[in-house]
Amino acid sequence: MSEARYDIYFRGDLLDGFYADFVKADMAQLFKTDPARLEAFFAGTPQPVKLKVDKPTAAKYKAALEKIGAKPIIVPMGKAPPAVANPTPQPEANTTDQDTKVAPASAGASDWTILPPGSDIGEHRDIQPMSVDISGLSLAQMGAALVEQQPRPTPVQVDISGLSLDEPGATLVDHPNRPAPVQVDISALSLDEPGAILVDGEPTPVPPAPDISHLTLE
């Protein structure tokens, strides 16, 4: 016996608390496509999402679509989806002072509607609260220091009994007697004319010419 197969359709029906614009954006991200290409899926006519899938795959698609607020239609393979019905209407808001409702947008117009002040315009997601273990936490007494201060070291006691203050302007350091400068006799020195050679030296001899008598040109 062959395994049962199923066809998955979507015609724009939404779960309670979800809005078409948000669902359309999430569906585009889910199927990695442009939101503009999903307009036909929200027009009220069943559109195929996935055909000829087994039961686990159908359940996987159902869970993924319902998580973002889309209500899929799953039928046995080859069976036509239910007759065309109006998609789940968007939440309509009552006016503040009158008992009239905002008219839905016409075909081809924007899906936006005007809600009264204070309305929840966000989509409701099934988010599980995070469980945080706080069993190891406790409350301190009012006014208690939350951060323990490290004990400061005991200041060092310095004996200054042998120190005293001198009079203002007194020289604190006595300079030893400096030796008298050395007297150098420069009476035998004189200045030469500018450009004079100060050091006399023997002239450098000219090196002898090399002997090339034994060389010939070929």
Rank of each mutant, 00 (worst) to 15 (best):
K60N: 05
V49S: 07
M130V: 14
D111G: 09
S106L: 15
I73S: 10
A109C: 09
E66T: 02
G136R: 07
P82T: 05
P116L: 11
Q128C: 04
E92R: 14
A63Y: 07
P81N: 07
T113K: 09
E66M: 12
P56S: 08
P56H: 01
V84S: 11
L65F: 13
K62D: 11
I114L: 14
A63G: 01
D111L: 14
I121G: 10
V49T: 05
T95V: 04
A107R: 15
E123Y: 04
V132E: 05
E92C: 03
S138V: 03
K71C: 04
G122D: 14
T96P: 07
S106D: 15
Q98C: 09
T57C: 05
V49W: 09
K101R: 08
I74D: 01
L115H: 13
P56I: 01
A64F: 02
G108K: 10
P89H: 04
G108Y: 05
P46G: 03
A85Y: 00
P89N: 10
A70P: 00
M77V: 11
E92H: 03
D133P: 10
V132R: 05
L65W: 04
T96M: 15
G78N: 14
K60S: 09
A109F: 06
T88W: 00
N86W: 02
A64M: 06
A107S: 14
A64K: 05
V132W: 04
K79Q: 15
N94T: 08
P117N: 14
A80W: 03
Q98V: 06
S119R: 08
T96R: 12
S106F: 10
P72C: 11
P87S: 11
K55D: 14
K79H: 13
P117S: 14
L139E: 02
P48W: 05
A93Q: 07
P129W: 00
K71N: 11
P48N: 04
I73A: 07
D54Q: 08
D126V: 00
V102W: 00
I127L: 13
N86A: 15
S119W: 10
K52H: 11
I127K: 14
K71G: 02
S131T: 10
A80M: 10
I114C: 09
V84G: 06
Q128T: 15
P76K: 15
P89L: 12
P82S: 08
D126I: 01
R125D: 07
L137W: 02
D111Q: 05
P81Y: 06
I134A: 11
P56K: 05
I68D: 04
A80N: 09
M77S: 13
K79N: 09
A80P: 09
G69Q: 01
P89F: 01
D120K: 15
V132N: 03
A109I: 03
P117F: 14
I134L: 13
T113Q: 10
P116V: 06
A103L: 13
A107C: 03
P81Q: 08
D133T: 09
Y61G: 00
K55L: 10
S119K: 03
K50V: 02
K52Y: 13
P82K: 11
A85D: 08
T96K: 13
Q47G: 00
T88H: 01
L139W: 01
A107Y: 12
H124K: 15
A103R: 05
L51D: 01
A85F: 01
A58V: 00
A85H: 06
D111K: 04
N86G: 10
S119T: 12
A58R: 01
L139F: 02
N94D: 12
I74R: 02
Y61H: 07
D120C: 10
L65K: 00
L115W: 08
S138M: 07
L115G: 05
